[in-house]
Design a protein around this nucleic acid. Structure first.
Lengths: 246, 246
DNA sequence: AATCTGTTTATGTACATACATATTTGATTT
DNA sequence: AAATCAAATATGTATGTACATAAACAGATT
């Protein structure tokens, strides 16, 4: 059966032709042959088949190329990228959702929430007095069979979190929906350290093992501090990726 | 001074007009007024100013929109996304200069340059045949009294580096000035690993010590790969900082 | 003051067309 | 068999044109 028969484009629909073409391509490339590296039909033919202009078709392809789903090569044609789905900039800061995307089920091994008095540097970061208590959340998370990260978060009193909040929900969803706090900016510091006795225990590794250590300072739209967070990741369980441009 | 005066586009250059326009836009939007929310000139006018077609200009804008740097809104115009990165070009990627800034004198403990045959994944990244040799540079660097990082770099044959180049010069200065290669984009992966025997020896630490491991993929303006680089940093000697916004 | 209404404006969609260029393929010559 | 060269092919670049549409704006009406 020809492509034209299976995927045809409705010129009278209110949804733009390039969007229809994009959708059709998304479906097309799920097919096994394309997943295995077969070229999609060339632009000129495909445009003809769909009865749209090459320019319009190109808009659709461009989007998928930019998303990293397709790769183009001159003369060689266009095919599905090896390595599949990346889609980076979404899921900003959401650990659980990112893990879900990667197909890794997440289990909470421990979850403690308490009021603590901040140390001097935390009080300074939050710009509050040291006698003002802050909410601390500590979590041990990982795969069902083994934990691989220890998180400690401290929240600015301003955000209004209390012990009654449901910390099993995705954190940034909780902040946004229940407290109207939108995390917008994060400054992070990443380094490698040795596992302390406590961390080693929680992550079930020998004392002194390599740990990826991450400090994170989180701010809202007004660049006001809302969270201070540290994470201890078991080596090899986590890779941090960054893209930068000049 | 008009835009046309400051940013003009060379119709006879081998670099595509849309790429030139893209570059010009990237520079333009670092300016304070645009960072503060002022619309960029509208497409019709801007195209006229740059003496390119609106279609071509649109290709450039599209790319920045996809990247999340610009947001378009009908009738309202196009402006810099709230909180988009200004990413100043200070010391981008230059290890030695950054260390200098921090007041840390740097010594090269080892420096080897050689031609190597790429492994399969490197050949794939560079998009070359495996029998094509690539230049490899290996360095051990650190404070005068102790090394703290091992670097291994592989360069795409296209950049034209040879054993005759002066690798004691800052690398990106060398690339830019002697080979007209401008590193523009880097994708990095950071993780923690244990020191192998070789790395442990070079960094003068026990085997199994924590190491901050960084892979870096470097691209030029045309997003063509130019360098693959890995770094092994002694724990506590190096902190990686990132700032990200949404 | 609030609401409706038409106008204006900048982006959004879509087409036909043309030539450039990288890469493969195959034919030709050495 | 190896090297050279030419053709074919799919993407890449670029233009000019046209009309659609959402949102902002301004003026008239309630």
């Amino acid at each position: 059966m020809s492509l034209k028969m299976r995927y045809n484009i409705d010129h009278k629909s209110p949804v733009p032709l390039h969007a229809q073409a994009e959708q059709m391509l998304r479906e097309l490339i799920t097919e096994e042959e394309y997943q295995n590296g077969k070229n999609i039909p060339n632009e000129v033919d495909l445009a003809k088949m769909l009865a749209i202009s090459r320019t319009t078709l190109r808009m659709a392809i461009n989007k998928l190329v930019f998303e990293g789903l397709l790769v183009r090569k001159k003369r060689a044609g266009t095919k599905v990228a090896t390595g599949a789905v990346s889609s980076k900039s979404n899921n900003w800061l959401s650990f659980s959702q990112e893990m879900k995307l990667r197909g890794i089920p997440i289990k909470n091994f421990e979850l403690h929430v308490s009021w603590e008095t901040p140390d001097i540097s935390l009080a300074h970061f939050f710009d509050i007095k040291q006698d003002k208590p802050v909410l601390k959340m500590k979590r041990v998370r990982g795969r069902p069979e083994e934990p691989f990260v220890v998180f400690e978060s401290y929240f600015h009193p301003r955000v209004g979190l209390t012990l009654d909040d449901d910390f099993k929900r995705p954190l940034y969803e909780l902040l946004e929906q229940e407290h109207s706090v939108i995390a917008t900016l994060s400054k992070e510091e990443i380094s490698a350290i040795s596992a302390s006795k406590e961390i080693a225990e929680k992550l079930r590794v020998p004392v002194g093992s390599p740990i990826l250590f991450r400090k994170r300072f989180v701010f809202d739209q007004g660049e006001r501090p809302i969270e201070f967070n540290v994470g201890y990741y078991k080596a090899d369980s986590f890779v941090y990726t960054v893209e930068s441009r000049r």
